[in-house]
Design a protein around this nucleic acid. Structure first.
Lengths: 208, 208
DNA sequence: GTCCACATACCGACCGGTCGGTGTCCAAAG
DNA sequence: CTTTGGACACCGACCGGTCGGTATGTGGAC
């Protein structure tokens, strides 16, 4: 038996035949987002993915590892995206607007990851939590750099600390998952542009 | 023996003699905020409060009930505060600024409750979750009413839907707990005023 | 044979909730 | 004043069930 026999272990060969680690991550993400990390048992994950516990513990060291991998993937992607937008040669305001709008769109596109990030971060082991925080911090600092650039050039107000503005904005972004519904009347890009506008306009120097 | 004998059952008589339900709520709040709802066992709570499981299940129907009571208390207080500010006879911009700043200050004053709200809401039973959402919704609608009032009068921009602005702002507020530290250099009121300024300025009509 | 990629059976820890008691207080009866 | 009875506020041992993790088996590729 076993038709699709000659395949490399980490490679997809069909539809439900995708690599086991990928399937595990995928179903774990959905379940964590829906029920929360602690309320999702390893048993449920492996059943959803169509494998057994043995398979999971073959690829991942622990349930925590699964969560960590989900985080790491999202963080890498967002950081990559920000870097590419921020370092273009467009005018500052456009770069910031694009970065802001993009992070909203990608957060909506991956609402599950976003929800998990929000709710389950503190359930990671302390050292893994530290790693995530460090990565997150780098991201925020890059974003903050854009704001500070505008403050130095006089395009943005200077009476608001840049880090307060960053936390203000990303608070909004992280909370998208708690209210945005795909059935709503606004597309992800529309929300993103609204958010970017609100941020940019909040940054205009006062009493213009 | 038993010196302090004649006291009503729900009343404090001294320092560590505070009413048992109050002590339970208090320590449960701290523990839920620190370790999360699911990771805090009933045993831990009752030990911290210096009572036994029997006592807890005498006053609360379940562990869920404990969480629900914590929510309900915070919601009642915030709604009361908003109502009093919003219905004063001050100019609209002042009322909105006060409401915004106040909710930030009270969120920082009760960071634990805020953290719990953020992380553990989805762990409530569906019906209790529904009750909380309904109350929360009323709060948001009241706040949104202020923004819509300003849009009608021409004080605020009309190119941004009021509910998007509300979600934008409360995202920031709910996320205070994930970055604000009392050891930081800004007081709660300073953050509140910054946030209120950012909101009000984001609402200015464009191309002023 | 032996290595890899899983499968299966199982373990010990722990957890929310229960339930049969127990001590204290108060009010009415005697 | 004493007794009685029962409501109230707890106590804490215990239970059924679940969970993360592990140890061992197994079957195909080389």
């Amino acid at each position: 038996m076993t038709r699709a026999s000659t395949r490399k272990p980490g490679e997809a060969t069909g539809d439900d035949q995708a690599a086991v680690p990928r399937r595990l991550l995928e179903h774990a993400t959905k379940l964590f987002a829906k029920k929360g990390f602690d309320r999702t048992s390893v048993q449920e994950i492996v059943e959803a993915a169509g494998v057994t516990k043995g398979a999971m513990y073959h690829y991942f060291g622990s349930k925590d590892d699964l969560l960590y991998e989900i985080y790491a993937r999202v963080l890498r992607e967002q950081t990559r995206q920000l870097e590419s937008v921020a370092s273009s040669d467009a005018p500052l305001r456009e770069r910031l607007a694009a970065a802001a709008s993009d992070v909203v769109v990608s957060s909506i596109d991956n609402l599950d990851d976003n929800t998990i990030f929000l709710q389950s971060m503190h359930q990671l082991s302390p050292d893994k939590q530290k790693a995530v925080r460090a990565e997150r911090r780098k991201y925020h600092e890059r974003f903050r750099g854009l704001i500070e650039e505008g403050q130095r050039s006089g395009e943005f107000r200077t009476d608001k600390p840049a880090d307060v503005v960053v936390d203000f904005f990303f608070g909004s972004v992280h909370h998208l998952g708690s209210w945005y519904r795909r059935s709503g009347s606004l597309t992800a890009r529309q929300i993103g542009d609204h958010y970017a506008d609100l941020l940019l306009d909040a940054l205009r120097p006062p009493v213009a």
